[in-house]
Design a protein around this nucleic acid. Sequence first.
DNA 1: ACCTTGACGGTTC
DNA 2: GGAACCGCCAAGG
Length: 117
Amino acid sequence: MINPHYQQIWKTVQLIPVGKVACYGQIADLAGLPGRARMVGKALGKVPKGGWQGQVVPWFRVINSQGKISFPVGSEYFAKQKQNLQDEQVVVLGSKIKLKYFQWQPDLAEILFSLEF
DNA sequence: ACCTTGACGGTTC
DNA sequence: GGAACCGCCAAGG
């Protein structure tokens, strides 16, 4: 039995375009779970291997509100996330990304879509 | 049932 | 900028 909130979160993360990033709190809001940024982190840690409903869940496009990768510098996942982002042309300086240039800004249609169901 | 642990974030100083 | 504080809540022990 999978927590329905998690499913909503995975679905929202799948909307982040290639080359853009979003914050945990931003995803929580869009998923209809305001104030539950921590749950987004939990949910991403439980993404089924092979993705969700036939699609990959781009967990690496989610970073914290300070524009930084949340894994400890030097850890395996830190390296993996940084690599994945750089592979799609996102500039990562140390552990930091300039939200000003790379943060996903969903338009109204996308927001409405994500709120359905 | 109680306590702790997080891939967090806004407020405040 | 940064650090402390507190609210958040599912999971696991």
